[in-house]
Design a protein around this nucleic acid. Structure first.
Lengths: 231, 231
DNA sequence: ACAATAATTTAGAATAGTCTAAAATTAGAT
DNA sequence: ATCTAATTTTAGACTATTCTAAATTATTGT
């Protein structure tokens, strides 16, 4: 059970996990972009990770990869570290929600199980991270969430902000000024298919118009169940 | 001023700093042992560090190395991280004093300046670490201390425990049961030159006899100024 | 159906860090 | 002073990770 994975490998697994929630299999290109390496390097790594014992992912030439159960566990371990650390940095060291990501990204690879447990205890074993995303449990189970992206809502529907991405400090500061934080509820006023702009009204705040790049970062629960969501 | 040093290089510098407080120059053998690498690897690293721009140490073939000012600064930065982290782990996450070292040894290389400052602030900008050793200041000045090793005291002299080494958990647990912690004062009862055993009486505690391997870990201030210390 | 374009893989090479075994140098002891 | 023992350095090689450039395979629009 004792696998010592390098920081690099942990990062690959984390990114693969993230990307495979959407699609089924992920290709070299997507990952190369996320990790700022060349696609060729990603191919190399795919082959290495697939030939580990036991393998961390299933690789079929030119068909991308999917994580094995071992690979998924390893990814969830890193994600648990990351989200616990973000919350810890905020609660204990007073980092703001746009400052925590980079620090957590480095710390997540070096903390021990002991550190993880102590942090979880100090925070009261939280289920949700600072940006609203779920924290995998100690036994590495990630809850299945029934949410969709903000961009998938249409005029007339209303929703509850569930979570936002943690990795863009500028965007996080912007969302905070708008009041578009986890827990906020809103109503979709209008949608323009030409530029993909979404005009929404946030309860207790002003109306805002969000571009596609913004809306993709936010997961919501649909409150208005009358209209069914596509996707 | 922005040097990104690898964890490996930081460890080399830290160890060289530690060893050069005793002797003047340190050789490949000593360092190889501390870092659990071969002497040949140490030679390689010496040459690399000496040819950095600016150089981190002065290397003369077969005469060992000494840190340059840049090298010393880098070492003190890492040591500051280490000692602040040890205290933080103890104060905030309730680690015991024999548990902090290993965790700090990994974290010290990845925390940011920001993290360092926040931790220092939370702890009230401490001057002394959990094991009594000084914490280099933010501008990386290490105070000059007038202390000596416990083994250098002789019967009749009395002293104050100044600091203990942080890296041997078993020893730390032992010292704690004896009451031989920073701040404890004691008197030397007897010394046996055959086995280097030191028999001391700790104020408010029992008498103990310490072997050479123990006494070397403890720095003391001599309280009885009548007898002058050698060495 | 097929050329143009996009994505992926191979091939070959670089860097940081490590190793072992052998060679060179220094230090110690008689 | 010199022979032995300890230390240090060289030489050559290995692993993990990355790169670029070229070759291969897929996709897609007409």
């Amino acid at each position: 059970m004792e696998r010592r994975l390098s920081d690099t490998v942990e990062n690959y697994l984390k990114v693969i996990y993230d990307l495979s929630s959407d699609n089924q299999r992920v290709g070299t290109g997507q990952i190369a972009e996320m990790l700022n390496v060349s696609p060729a390097s990603v191919t190399d790594m795919f082959q290495r990770l697939a030939s580990e014992d036991p393998p961390l992912l299933n690789y079929v030439k030119r068909q991308g990869v999917a994580l094995t159960e071992d690979g998924k566990k390893a990814a969830l371990e890193t994600i648990r570290h990351h989200r616990l650390l973000e919350l810890f940095l905020h609660e204990v060291l007073d980092y703001s929600w746009d400052q925590v990501h980079d620090e957590a990204d480095r710390l997540e690879h070096v903390i021990s199980e002991d550190f993880e447990e102590r942090v979880a205890a100090v925070l009261g074993n939280p289920q949700w991270g600072l940006h609203g995303k779920p924290i995998p449990s100690r036994n590495l189970v990630m809850p299945d969430l029934d949410t969709c992206y903000l961009r998938d809502l249409r005029p007339g529907q209303s929703g509850l902000v569930h979570s936002v991405n943690d990795d863009d400090p500028g965007l996080l500061r912007y969302l905070e000024t708008l009041g578009l934080v986890p827990g906020a509820s809103f109503e979709v006023i209008d949608f323009s298919p030409y530029d993909n702009n979404l005009h929404i009204r946030i309860k207790g705040e002003n109306d805002v118009v969000l571009g596609a790049s913004v809306t993709v970062q936010i997961r919501v629960e649909i409150l208005d169940l009358a209209v069914d969501k596509e996707r």
